[in-house]
Structures are given as C-alpha cells and as structure tokens.
Design a protein around this nucleic acid. Structure first.
Lengths: 142, 142
DNA sequence: AAGTCAAATGCAATTAGGTTGCAGCCGGAG
DNA sequence: CTCCGGCTGCAACCTAATTGCATTTGACTT
C-alpha cells in the first residue's frame, strides 16, 4: 500500500526531527491517530490499540512525549480527561481549531478555525484554546 | 455578626431562586467558597471543610449541583482536576457570557457577551457555554 | 403544629484515569 | 558489530471521581 508507507515516511521524519526514536509502537500510535477525526483520550486510544499488544503505560507516555514535542495537540474539554489529536496538516498549519463537546451524545466535534471570532476584550488575552459546550447539530436534528 | 448573616441571606435567595433546598451544608460550603479568592478543587475544599463533619460525597455532589445550576463556575486547568468558583458578580444568569480560564493563575474571568462571535458551522449547534483557555491579560503583562 | 415526600446527606465501596519504578529490549550512533 | 541510553512491558500505586443505599430533613400541605 503506497498511501500507508508514504504516511509512515512522514511519521518517521516527524519523529526524528524532534529527536525522538522511531519505534514500531509510535508508528502504530500515529497511524491510529491519523485515522481518527476528533481528539481522543488515553483510555479510548488504549482500547483501540488492544490488538497490537501495546501497553497502556506506553500509550500514555507516548501521548505525553509527543504532545510535549509538539507532534500532538492536547485538549482539555471539561470532563477531567485529556484528549490528544494530530494537527490537521502536519507541517504548516499548527493552528488550533475550536472544539464542541456535545452534552447529549458526548462526542467531540472539531470546528473550522474561522467559525469562532474573538474581538474586543477577548483579544487582550492569550487564548490558546476555544471550547463550546452544547448539543451538536446531529443531536439537535434527531 | 451582621456581615455573615447578610451573606447567608443572599445565599438563601440564591439557592431558592434556583429551586434548590437551603441546607446547613450548602451554606457552609458557600461561605467557604466566598472566603477563597481563586477556584478550588473538590479535594481541597473537602480538606477545608474537615471540621464541619461534612462528607466528601456531599461536597462533591453539591459542587456539581451548584455548578449545574449556574451558582458556581467550573474551571479546568491543565491537570485534569475540576475547580469551582463563586462568580464575583452573582448575576442572575451566569451561563450566558463567555468565560476565560487562565491556565497560569487559575482564575476565571467573565467576558462581555459580544466578545465571542459564532458563525458558519458553529451556529448549527445549540451552544450553551463558551469557554476560552489561555493566559489572562494580567498574567500576560506580568 | 403535625404530616408527608422527595431532596439531600452520610457512609462505604467502587471505578477510572493518571503516574511511577524497574528490569529487559531495541533503535541508531560510532 | 557493539554499545548506550531511550523505550517498552509489567505491575503496582495513587488520587479524583462516582455511585448505591439507608437515613435524615427541608419545605410544602393539611
């Protein structure tokens, strides 16, 4: 599979450029994260890696390591659980986007960066994360 | 003490106006929260209530109940621990304006309603709460 | 003032997510 | 090929959150 190996190549570069070793576990982890569309927590991710035999401590430490290195973005969405995600476009665009936490279905939706506009007093602060809570479109229509 | 009884009177109104019962425990809890200047976590608060013989579960459930009712504001710094705060201005409707949680000093700042504008895809959801995280103006300038 | 009932509390147990120490493994530099 | 330090697996451990249930009690009704 061309696509997969291409992706792996990017991941290798990403890791080595940050001075991190390229391990089979890290590649598995990054592949998984690339398949997911919204931020994922450590327990959720451990769950999905079940088949690989990877230990939860390894998942945990790698999430921290990768977030620290700037490879992943860490999100705090109000439920006392840290969630991580691979930035949309890995190289250029590290821009954060707003997250919507649905209080009904619990899912986390990523919104386009432009949909939330700060102005006035809000711009006087260094805002690093924008999060909305409410009912997502799917739940509203259901 | 005049001040104390006056404060208690406000607390009673606050509770009854939200359809919550006025219990000795809730008054103790609100008094404690009024004495504190920055958001406090459930364990910290339980610790400080030690002398009152109040149970941790009672503290916990009341924090949730009061936050749910809009009497308290819930904040999350980077450590996966929920902290709660009595808003400075106890306005009737505290959930309608955005909050900025400073990840440095931990305080929660209330922002004017107009400072955060939703548009596009964001408006397709029923957003009930807007929270920004980052460093507040005071910490940035310090 | 007494009666009533759901809300609230106390107590105890349990789950969950985060975190760490250590021995053995392995990526990659030399 | 060899060696070293980073990485992994395993197994605890800790703290915070959460829940079930019997009992108490606030606040409304009579």
């Amino acid at each position: 599979m061309k696509a997969s190996s291409r992706r792996d190549h990017d991941f290798r570069d990403l890791l080595t450029s940050r001075g991190l070793r390229v391990t089979e576990q890290r590649l598995l982890l990054l592949r998984k994260l690339a398949d997911v569309t919204s931020p994922i927590s450590h327990p959720e991710l451990t769950e999905r890696m079940a088949g690989s035999g990877m230990d939860r401590a390894t998942v945990y430490r790698n999430l921290l390591t990768l977030a620290e290195a700037g490879v992943l973005v860490r999100a705090q969405l109000g439920d006392n659980v840290s969630r991580f995600e691979l930035p949309r476009t890995m190289s250029s665009d590290h821009s954060r986007h707003p997250h919507l936490v649905c209080t009904e279905c619990g899912n986390v939706r990523c919104l386009p960066s432009g949909t939330v506009k700060l102005r006035g007093e809000a711009t006087k602060n260094e805002v690093s994360e924008v999060q909305l809570r409410g009912r997502c479109a799917a739940c509203v229509n259901a």
